[in-house]
């Protein structure tokens, strides 16, 4: 869900300045920033550079190195398909394809209406109930191709009966 950055500028400032202006708090600042904005807005990264005195190029390097961060806004419902080993051998690749078939998005993409975005994650640590996927904070265990369609529908996604949108 895209957030209007202008409306929360003050909040961003508060979040970043809650930490001392030291290099070692940069990751924490970014994590908190992403929690309220749902991605890392450029304005926020520039503020982190200013607060810590670390070069903006280095801040950008950090933001792109760690996978938890997104530099573009994500959808209202962020579908995280676990592609850990246990999930993989139980068919997560099929689920990823099935999301593409029904919503037309690949990992890292967001639907045009901004409703869904898809990402793959390495392991959610829920291997015993593989394959799993998360929609925002909710975990769905033992997802099948057909079960996936029901999940998407439950969040208001339009899915054709043959699995193609």
């Amino acid at each position: 869900m895209a957030v209007d950055i202008n409306q929360i500028q003050e909040k961003i400032h508060v979040i970043i300045y809650a930490y001392p202006g030291e290099k070692r708090y940069i990751l924490a600042m970014m994590q908190d920033l992403q929690k309220i904005c749902n991605y890392l807005p450029r304005e926020g990264l520039e503020l982190i550079a200013e607060h810590t005195g670390v070069a903006f190029s280095e801040i950008y390097s950090l933001a792109t190195f760690y996978k938890a961060f997104s530099l573009v806004p994500r959808g209202k419902y962020n579908i995280k398909v676990c592609d850990g080993t246990a999930c993989h051998i139980k068919g997560s690749a099929v689920i990823i394809d099935q999301v593409f078939n029904s919503l037309g998005i690949k990992p890292g993409e967001t639907t045009e209406d901004g409703l869904f975005s898809l990402e793959t994650v390495n392991c959610l640590g829920a291997c015993a109930i593989a394959p799993v996927l998360m929609v925002n904070e909710k975990i769905y265990p033992k997802v099948s191709s057909s079960g996936l369609l029901d999940i998407i529908k439950a969040y208001g996604g339009h899915v054709h009966e043959d699995g193609k949108s």
């Binding site: 070069a55 903006f56 190029s57 280095e58 950008y60 390097s61 792109t64 190195f65």
Partner: peptide, 9 residues
């Protein structure tokens, strides 16, 4: 200058 850096991984 610190204008460029290694990005992604």
């Amino acid at each position: 200058s610190n204008a460029i850096s290694l990005i992604m991984r």
